[in-house]
Simulated scan of single mutants.
Amino acid sequence: MPLPFLTADRAFGAADGSDDVALPFDDHDQWRRPYRPGPWRVGTAALLLLLASFVLLAAMIIAFADALPGAAVCLLIGVMVIATALRLLRMGTWVSRNGVRRVAFFSTTTLSWDRASALRTVQQPVRWLGLPRTVQGQALVVVHPNDEPLLLLTDHDADFLSRPEAFERATDTVEAWGDEYRRG
């Protein structure tokens, strides 16, 4: 069974050991995350799915006890926890030939490459794991005219906390996509 999320790092660490492939995917029209989800994001989603399994087991036990309204409530809570875990795994920066997309928990922002004037890594206060607390860190932003910059990646989010090499690879890959499609 193919696992497409495992091919995100194919550009860095090909079978022959070369790092010369900037855009490793065959279909550039499909939206792709150019990096693997980080351990904080995957671990949180795994814990949520574990919690959902217990809630769904409770719904089954309640249903066997003939308390169907309570079972329906537990089933609804379990489905909501599963949807939350899936949305958490979906969050991040996605790229395609059409542009760059920033997927947040409640919103998605898409910016076409022709509207982006620059992609740059800047030092600025960033949110730590998406919480209100800010720390000094690096962020990859897309600058587009007549609007404030769109924040794509930070080195303190759930994908890159304590993984500076992965942050550098991800920013290089997103910048390579931007360089390729902002020109052409």
Rank of each mutant, 00 (worst) to 15 (best):
L50V: 01
D29R: 09
H28R: 09
L48I: 02
G92D: 05
P24S: 12
L68H: 11
M80Y: 11
W40E: 12
D66K: 04
F25N: 11
A65E: 03
W94R: 08
M91G: 04
L57I: 03
L76H: 08
D66M: 06
P39T: 14
W31Y: 05
L89R: 13
A71T: 04
R33G: 04
R90T: 07
G92H: 06
A71S: 12
T44H: 02
G38K: 10
P37A: 15
A63N: 08
L49N: 02
R36K: 14
L49I: 00
A85P: 11
A67I: 07
L48T: 02
F64M: 12
T93F: 08
G70F: 06
V95L: 08
R87P: 03
D26W: 13
V79S: 14
P34W: 10
I62C: 05
A22W: 11
H28Q: 07
D26I: 13
G78I: 03
A72S: 10
L23C: 06
F64Q: 12
A63F: 09
V73P: 04
T84K: 06
A45R: 01
D27S: 04
C74G: 07
F54N: 00
R87L: 09
V73M: 11
T93Q: 06
A46F: 01
L51I: 03
A65H: 01
L50H: 00
R41L: 11
I61R: 15
A22D: 14
R90Y: 14
F54T: 01
A72M: 13
L23D: 10
A71I: 02
D29C: 01
F64P: 00
P39Y: 14
T93R: 09
L75F: 14
S96N: 12
L75P: 00
M60S: 05
L75V: 09
P39R: 15
D66F: 08
A67T: 10
D66N: 12
I77G: 04
A22R: 13
D29I: 00
W94A: 02
G43E: 03
A46K: 02
I62D: 02
V42S: 06
L51N: 05
A65K: 03
A52C: 03
F25L: 12
A65L: 03
F54S: 00
Q30T: 14
M91L: 09
T84E: 15
A22E: 14
A52E: 01
A59R: 00
R32D: 07
D29V: 00
A52I: 00
V55Y: 00
I77T: 07
L86M: 15
G78N: 09
T93Y: 06
D66T: 04
M91H: 02
A71C: 08
V81Y: 05
L57Q: 10
I61T: 13
L47S: 05
M91Q: 15
T93P: 06
L68C: 00
M60G: 01
M60D: 02
V55T: 12
